[in-house]
Simulated scan of single mutants.
Amino acid sequence: MSKDRDMSQALLDQVNQALRLGTALRIQGGNSKAMLGRPVTGELVDTRNHRGIVSYDPTELVITARAGTPLLEIEAALHEAGQMLPCEPPHLGVEATLGGAVAAGLSGPRRPWAGAVRDYVLGTRVITGHGKLLRFGGEVMKNVAGYDVSRLMAGSFGCLGLLTEVSLKVLPQPRQCLSLCLPMGRQQALAALAEWGQQPLPISAACHDGEALYLRLEGGEGSVQSARQRLGGDELDSGFWHDLREQRLAFFDDPAPLWRLSVPIASGALNLPGRQLIDWGGAQRWLKSSASAQSLRAAVAQVGGHVTGYAPGEDSSAPLPAALLRYHRALKQQLDPQGIFNPGRLYPDL
């Protein structure tokens, strides 16, 4: 406990010094998500020394770890106990940390069926812009203006505070996992997914690369084998989903800029310039295209979606509607009134 206090105190001291001097802070863990959002200038806060699993009881299905703990370390401990992080947060680098995974809020192929990162955050310890280390969620509830602060940290990219500790709900690994490849076109695949989505099939991942539909079936042996016989296709190495999550498929080797499109799951095929990879059963589309951000956002907005660029720059984050931006500003003012945490990382004036 003494070592934990020392590590927390070092981070707290750095934040309080920044508040006294009016210095911006650039929060960083493994830096594996540096391509997302705008570049931040400021004094570096490296969380990687604040690491280690604080508590983990498999019978409680909860793990608590410090923000600088490598994701690999957490997943190894869970795997040994036959459990997992259901949201499959992408690493995008061997140095990825728990704090970075929560701050980025990214989820893997299981997202539409299991939920997002924020759905599994039970509690956090956060250093706020008031220079205090507070606990949110879990056993002690301290919310700001009615907000669930712990879950708001997911996807905030460090703009609301400095995460020091996270408690996550975990789940048992499925008893059986089987992956399939079914050759078919994009329209046929989207129609099939829409139909299967209304049926009790144990699908936990679905992807289409333009030529074939890839499915992952998870659950009890009986339900998986029954679905396998019904759906047909060829068995696929389950490593495919890891490569998809980590952007290691051949599709991602294309040198064109990478865009992430989030759209309603029943959007159908999108006529956009470049190459597409359908993920999340249709709700997430990866696009390799040199088209402008403005033209892509205009096209995707017509189906009720938004676009995120996977390269640092002014156009990487989708602009917020005015009403939503007011909420963001109000929340930022509550938690970081001096604006020292990752200023401008998500939006220019936050």
Rank of each mutant, 00 (worst) to 15 (best):
A114C: 08
A283M: 03
N143I: 14
A189N: 02
G161Q: 11
K3T: 08
G129H: 08
Y56D: 08
R216H: 03
V62E: 09
A18Q: 05
L325Q: 13
G22V: 04
A103M: 09
L122T: 07
Q14P: 05
G123W: 00
Q187W: 05
Y327F: 08
D336H: 12
E95K: 06
H328F: 13
G344C: 03
A189Y: 01
R111Y: 10
S290M: 11
P70G: 10
S289Y: 11
G129T: 09
T97N: 10
Q9Y: 10
I74C: 08
G239A: 12
N49I: 03
G197I: 05
D119N: 13
L231G: 01
S167N: 01
V149Q: 13
F136W: 13
L160S: 00
D46G: 03
Q225I: 05
A116V: 09
S267D: 05
C181K: 15
G197K: 06
V224S: 00
E60Y: 02
I265V: 15
E221F: 07
A192E: 04
L258F: 08
H130P: 14
L44D: 05
V166K: 14
V54A: 10
L168C: 08
P319Y: 03
G30I: 02
L19H: 09
R26Q: 11
L78D: 08
G42Q: 05
G30R: 07
Q334C: 14
A114N: 12
L261T: 10
P109V: 07
Q28L: 06
P319T: 01
A81Y: 15
L162I: 00
S32P: 03
L160E: 02
R38L: 02
C177G: 07
T64M: 06
P86S: 15
L44R: 09
R110H: 07
L201H: 13
G68Q: 08
G313N: 12
T64R: 12
L272C: 00
K132Y: 02
L85M: 12
P343Q: 00
L61T: 09
R110F: 00
R66I: 02
W286Q: 10
A101Y: 03
E73G: 10
A76L: 11
G232Q: 07
A322K: 13
V166L: 13
R297W: 04
S290R: 13
R151M: 02
E235C: 05
R228G: 03
A114G: 07
L335W: 12
R260T: 08
W259Q: 11
R38Y: 02
Q17A: 12
G93M: 08
L350F: 12
G108P: 00
L261E: 08
T164E: 04
V62R: 14
